[in-house]
């Protein structure tokens, strides 16, 4: 038996390669990383009022932007770019090497985590400097924030890889994936205050992870007094964790079982 490098080691190397490739696509780097900042600028300038005592819309929106950034950067980006890689034969070539599928998935997870970290740093920077966004001061909130970003990013990666089997071609992928994400953002309370949405929208959104990510981020960026204004009158942190883990398991299951390396 030949001694092969471990799947984790190759996954980390693939992560490095993915990040390098991403960094060289200048247009998409700027667009992907700055898009949430641009949205914050637009919404922060339009809605100047407070939505609760001491809670500005910008503050509410930062929570939503980080949550939906996780979905855009992971799920949406992967569900569009993986079919493209498949179209040009890149995945089939990888399939023909001793690299295991898990290394490819780990590489993608690293890429998404790295771009999320940069995106959040930019959002914090601009939010602090120009939109009066306040950072949490308690350690427990930062802990929640950390696991939310890590779990959310991994979950979003797994679901993006799983969903990449749906678009038939790279060219059509964006048309399939983008509307889903945009609708989910509206339903999940990214752009509007969640409790002001119609009940059926709230209930539909509660099936998907974005609503829970957004709510979790609100628990980090809004004062605890705001929790009483949530649907369940609390942040439901435990529930959020459970639902994200459930979606992560679903994503991994379909990624492992159904991933398509070739067009046909």
């Amino acid at each position: 038996m030949n001694k092969l490098p471990s799947a984790l080691k190759l996954g980390i190397r693939r992560g490095g390669l993915e990040v390098r490739q991403f960094a060289r696509q200048r247009e998409s780097v700027v667009f992907t990383l700055l898009f949430p900042v641009i949205l914050l600028a637009i919404f922060g300038s339009v809605f100047k009022d407070t939505i609760a005592p001491g809670v500005t819309f910008s503050q509410y929106f930062v929570a939503g932007m980080i949550a939906s950034g996780l979905v855009n950067t992971g799920f949406q980006a992967l569900a569009i770019t993986i079919p493209m890689e498949r179209d040009v034969g890149g995945l089939k070539r990888l399939r023909g090497t001793p690299m295991p599928a898990s290394s490819y998935f780990i590489g993608k997870a690293i890429l998404i985590a790295v771009s999320m970290i940069i995106q959040i740093a930019l959002l914090f920077g601009f939010g602090l400097l120009f939109f009066g966004v306040e950072m949490p001061t308690e350690l427990s909130k930062w802990l929640t924030f950390t696991w939310l970003v890590l779990l959310g990013s991994t979950c979003s990666t797994a679901l993006g890889i799983a969903f990449s089997i749906v678009p038939k071609s790279g060219r059509g992928a964006s048309a399939v994936v983008s509307p889903i994400v945009i609708i989910l953002q509206f339903f999940s309370g990214v752009f509007f205050v969640f409790t002001q949405l119609p009940t059926w929208m709230q209930q539909l959104a509660a099936i998907f992870p974005l609503k829970w990510l957004t709510q979790g981020m609100r628990s980090v960026f809004l004062p605890d007094s705001f929790a009483t204004q949530e649907v369940a009158k609390s942040w439901e942190t435990g529930r959020t964790f459970q639902i994200l883990v459930l979606w992560l398991v679903i994503g991994i299951f379909f990624s492992v079982r159904k991933f398509k390396w070739d067009r046909d």
């Binding site: 490739q21 060289r24 890689e85 040009v88 995945l91 089939k92 070539r93 023909g96």
Partner: peptide
Amino acid sequence: VLQSAADAGDL
């Protein structure tokens, strides 16, 4: 060596 692969253009 497959018929065509046009991936990884940025490496």
